[in-house]
Amino acid sequence: MSMFLVDTLQDLVVEPMKKGYGRGLLEAGKNNLQIVALSSDVVGSTGTDEFTKEFPERFIEVGIAEQNLVAVASGMAAMNKVPVAAAYAAFMPGRCWEQIRTTICINDRPVVLVGTHAGISDAPDAATHQMLEDIAIMRSLPNMVVVAPCDSEEARKAIIDATSLDKPIYIRIARDDTPIITTTKTPFIIGKANVFKEGSDITIISTGRSTYHALLAASILDKDNINAEIVHCSTIKPLDESTILKSVKKTGKVVVTEEHQITGGLGGAVAELLGEEYPVPMRRVGVKDRFGESGKPDDLLRAMGLTPTHIAMAAHQLIG
């Protein structure tokens, strides 16, 4: 594997992304005393607790009140604090999109928003808690950066970089144990996509947890003598257009995969780009205009058509 990834996809260490976020927030907090954490009664389940134990005086508990979470964070940013507000993605940005739009984006206050339990990873909690529309509503906001790390290590890097970005940013992380595919040496730059595996026959673009599934799909395709290039788009907005165009011009075909509705997410962003700049045959592997349900994450991946096999099948459809 290239790009300083783990050596093999076998027997990977797994960890919830919130662990990496929690470690990263603590690390950033030690270096920057202006960083403050805010929670809406979800300190433990979002991974913010490492920071709050170390810096209780820099922690604000707003209660179950996501609209106020965002407004308070905006006010703290006005005073040159670096507020990091974490909550379940279904509630933030789900509940409080207008406050994000007005008090953070139009107002241009550099707040770090962390939406946890995104995608289908909050599997048993069912449709209400499985946030599948957050990329769409966040990437449509001017002034907002949208990032979806692929594992806990990348989540660690993402929160550290976000706290020095000086721009509004939304970081989307999954709930469940996720295989760790990157290392401390894997490059991570907000706004930059990474080619995690080079290939020549088809480009598979992915974000978040789906990048692991895309890599597994590449292994399946290898057996069929199809050499897939895997482009991990950790930043969905601003989209790294040059990296995507370079890969697609080489392969001429593209599959996009994500744990998100197929409308408005990364697939939509890539379709917008390629539709104008370089139209090629394309398939979107994502959630097809439905909500989730209870089950195990793997049950849901199968039911929604998001498994590595589904990604490989989409590639086969394009290659014929």
Binding site: N68, V70, A71, V72, S74, G75, M76, A78, T102
Partner: peptide, 13 residues
């Protein structure tokens, strides 16, 4: 409905 929340953030800071 967002002014008081921002005031809280400023006041806390």
């Amino acid at each position: 409905g967002s002014g008081l929340g921002q005031a809280c953030g400023i006041g806390l800071a």
